[in-house]
Design a binder for these strands. Structure first.
Lengths: 133, 133
DNA sequence: TCGGTATATTCTTCTCTACGCATATTCCTT
DNA sequence: AAGGAATATGCGTAGAGAAGAATATACCGA
């Protein structure tokens, strides 16, 4: 039952926040660590859980690994991500996450690092210098 | 975080099917047992879990206890129940549950027992003989 | 008051999950 | 080739959750 896998992934706060972020923007692991202020192991393990349940896809970009929702997401996942966004609108925790995300992406595009060379759907800094295959 | 409680309740198959049924119709415990073909303990424990997480309300009707979604459901719960209904439409398991529910309610209104004296939103048998306070 | 029906709770066992520490892997740069 | 950065994995522990058996509780009717 696909639905149960989806709900299992959504029922932990860390994963819920990760999925909420991913419903807005593909991100790499270091961003999750920064946005959620969580240790690397914790983030990595929850991302593994999401991978095992096929709720996310990965793309290697040099040293970084960019996580995103599946390109061909099931109808159930799409519906639930939409529902999640609706539920999160106006919520303090999730709004703060989005703010931190935008800040992180802005910094990321700066002189220090540029991992998530995707085209973000939200505000973005400048100078996406390089995008290795 | 209210959302997490909701997802925790949804991430088990038994509870998922119970909540899906409740999104259509208030039901008493014996109906869940019959529709899901599950032993009494199992149903009762999962209902207790739903109660503890405030996803359901109960009303005593004589010997029976009728379960329903909260009258004043949170926006999150309402949204997720809507989403669940959308996701379940056309699914074999959930559709069969609904069919069994209607059959159970029809029998229930018959000469044998009449526990769920609510006004069902779906098809219904006849003769809702009594509704004790 | 007693028996019966509907439902809940307790206890035990087992599995799954979360977390942190330490370590491994992969890739890049020099 | 070597070091460093980003990310993943293995191990151990502790707690949550699921299931069934047995038992308890609450209500009803006679």
């Amino acid at each position: 039952m696909k639905l149960i896998a989806i709900y299992k992934c959504l029922c932990d706060e860390t994963r819920l926040r990760i999925l909420h972020l991913l419903s807005h923007q593909a991100l790499c692991v270091c961003h999750f660590q920064e946005i959620l202020s969580a240790p690397q192991v914790k983030i990595s393990k929850h991302l593994a859980y999401l991978r095992e349940h096929a709720l996310v896809e990965t793309k290697r970009e040099g040293t970084w690994i960019v996580y995103s929702l599946p390109v061909k997401a099931s109808a159930e996942l799409t519906a639930n991500m939409k529902c999640l966004q609706d539920c999160c609108r106006g919520n303090a925790v999730f709004s703060a996450d989005l703010r931190r995300m935008n800040r992180a992406l802005a910094n990321c595009a700066g002189p220090l690092a540029e991992c998530c060379g995707e085209q973000p759907k939200t505000a973005r800094g400048s100078k996406p210098k390089a995008a290795r295959a």
